[in-house]
Amino acid sequence: MLDASYYEKTDEIIACHTREERSLIPIIQDIQEEYRYLPPELLSYVAGKIGISEAKAFSVASFYENFSFEAKGKYVIKVCDGTACHVRKSIPILEGLYKELGLNKDKHTTDDQLFTVETVSCLGACGLAPAVMINDEVYGKMTPEKMSELIKKLREE
Rank of each mutant, 00 (worst) to 15 (best):
R22Y: 03
E21V: 11
E33P: 00
A57H: 06
G51T: 08
K107E: 04
A55L: 12
K153E: 06
E95S: 12
E118K: 15
K105G: 14
D112E: 08
E100A: 12
L114Q: 13
A131R: 12
Q29Y: 01
K49Q: 09
Y139F: 14
A129Q: 05
C126D: 00
I91H: 09
P92R: 13
A71V: 13
A57F: 01
P144A: 13
M147G: 11
L114G: 02
L103N: 08
K49F: 06
T83G: 10
I77V: 14
K146N: 05
D112M: 08
N66T: 14
N66D: 09
I28Q: 03
R36G: 08
G127Y: 01
H17N: 05
R19T: 08
E34F: 02
P39A: 02
P26W: 00
Y75A: 01
Q32G: 01
V87Y: 11
G124D: 07
P40C: 01
K107L: 10
L154V: 09
K56T: 14
L128Q: 09
E157V: 14
Y37L: 02
V60W: 09
E65Q: 13
L94I: 14
T83E: 05
A84N: 12
K89Y: 08
L2S: 03
Q32F: 05
E12F: 13
E95K: 15
D112C: 11
C126L: 04
T109H: 10
D136I: 05
P130L: 04
T18I: 10
G102V: 07
G124C: 00
Q113S: 15
V60Q: 06
I93P: 13
I14M: 02
A125C: 02
E33I: 00
K72C: 12
A47Q: 03
D3R: 14
E54D: 10
G73T: 04
Y139I: 08
H17S: 02
E41N: 08
I151T: 05
L94H: 13
T119E: 06
D112Y: 09
